[in-house]
Amino acid sequence: MGSRSSLLICVLVFGVVSALFTGHPESAWPLAQIDDYLLNILIMAGINVILAVSLNIVSGHTGQFSLGHAGFMAVGAYGSAAVTQIGGKAILNALSFLGGAAPTCVFVLSLFVGGSLAAVAGLAVGLPSLRLKGDYLAIVTLGFGEIIRVVIQNTEAVGGARGLTGIPSFTTLGWTWGLAAFCIYCVSALVRSTYGRGFLAVRDDEIAAEAMGVNTTKYKVTAFVVGSFFAGLAGALYAHLIGYITPEGFSFLKSVDVVVMVILGGMGSTLGVTVAACLLTFLNELLRQAEQYRMVAFALLLIVLMILRPQGLLGGIDRWIQARRNRS
């Protein structure tokens, strides 16, 4: 799939999925009439896929271990909610000439605003963090994530510590999985190009990458910006799914959640990470009754995985497929 056919497939999947699952119970399509509970889980899975795949381009492909992904998600969530909830009426009125399409337009606008603000935040984090590696970078990104959270907590205009309520529920299955497909496409298309080999080169050896003319600074910042843009989108979708967001919901533990998905799926494997994000979403639901034990089990899993299989449960799957393709 060296050509644009993969893009076409993505658009096709997006079209079909959004047509089938508009998320409205009165939809004419029989498939759309699944119950709300399942629908929510499927949407959450999509959001988690976006989060995991977007963290993967930063940590997996470019090797910049980040613990601040929830911070970017928060920026996207609050940014988009500002458009629909705080500025909602005014914008809706301004767009009234669009008729029935107006709410959708507001939503699209809010997604765009959320993603872009998060991308700007990613740029702000990426630039000063460039000199750092490994555990230092992890701590600094964690610190940035916490700073974002503390700032939101102390900003009364967005509800402070109480959070922001009454966000319209615009998020549908179609939008979520459409954007998830878009995210997967973008990340894999970037990585699977001569240009994108730069990300992998930076991950493997920064000094050698520089010596081969790869501008490591530019690649790292690009990875951060792309990653946080999609994290922002995921945040925006999340805000418009749950309808209510608090700064606490985007704490360090949320970032760790995403990290676990990426590690489980295998750093640098888009397919593995996608599968892991879905699996973990469903597993979380199954274990909701045993909430207390769930995180203990995850923590143990993480430790055992690192000792026995650091490439992740599904890591290497991409390479295996690649190898088969080359053989044929």
Partner: peptide
């Protein structure tokens, strides 16, 4: 068991230990 492994592996393990202590504590 991770002495000779990449530092990132050890760091992730440490995060795992941290979560384990926190949630066992909660339990």
């Amino acid at each position: 068991p991770l002495r000779e492994r990449p530092r990132l592996t050890v760091l992730i393990t440490a995060i795992g230990v941290s979560l384990l202590l926190e949630y066992s504590g909660q339990l």
